[in-house]
Nucleic acid binder design. Structure first.
Lengths: 127, 127
DNA sequence: TAACACTATGTAATAATATAACATATATTA
DNA sequence: TAATATATGTTATATTATTACATAGTGTTA
């Protein structure tokens, strides 16, 4: 549980206080006043934050969300629900689900160390 | 089960005979001799093919693979294993898994109509 | 402390992925 | 046939992400 560097902290704070997933260039625009000027600076911080599990990438949306699931210290097992209308994204933390997926074996008996699951549907408001 | 249009058929054939997922611009380069010259022509065909379930998008890789799972006529429930070394992608068809995920309810009792699951690990060859 | 390894930063350029806007054509069906 | 929906062609542009190179800070450890 290392400390974050300056850029990592700035970017994490932004993502963490955002109610919705943020895209890399949205982040860039929002941190330019803090001296982060180039895409690469953003992507490098994002890579690191993903690596250490502070944030997750929503692959189908190219967007990043802070991890609010104390059990995933490392970015290895993620599950989200995504509303197809309002795009609200929520991290799912279900012991049953993670257990099921962590123990899942394919036809060849292979187990997998990581997974990413995205559920799509309509959220309460949009139903 | 409608017929595919000319561009859709060309692009589906290419993806279907590929042993690995193909990216949009790789597809473009490979169909230029058949008269498909612009990215948009490729993306439009891909969108349609995904929509009718003939192909799936591997979100974490921005790549497309033909569906070899007779049960998913519609692109609504997909699961893949991805090797982190050689990038081999395999569609998982497990009755147990699809049943579990189709019936999964979140904390609020919400069920989801679609999902996409990507497992990461090492394939047999790369272990 | 000096040497080293490692991690992070800054900057410019460019690559890779995807869509907007507009014009036309083909297929389907009422 | 008229109307509607779907597909195509083309140009331009937006969005997302990486390469390459130079520099700076941080933490060992000899």
């Amino acid at each position: 549980m290392q400390n974050l560097s300056k850029n990592q902290q700035i970017i994490f704070d932004l993502i963490d206080k955002s109610p919705e997933p943020l895209k890399a260039y949205t982040i860039l625009y929002n941190v330019q006043k803090k001296g982060i000027k180039a895409p690469l600076q953003v992507y490098r911080a994002l890579d690191k934050l993903v690596q250490i599990g502070k944030i997750h990438k929503i692959e189908s949306r190219n967007a990043f969300i802070a991890c609010h699931n104390s059990s995933c210290q490392v970015a290895k097992a993620t599950a989200f629900s995504i509303c197809e209308i309002c795009e609200k994204v929520t991290e799912i933390s279900s012991a049953g689900l993670s257990k099921y997926l962590a123990n899942f074996k394919d036809k060849d008996g292979m187990k997998y160390s990581k997974y990413n699951l995205e559920f799509f549907g309509l959220c309460k408001k949009c139903r």
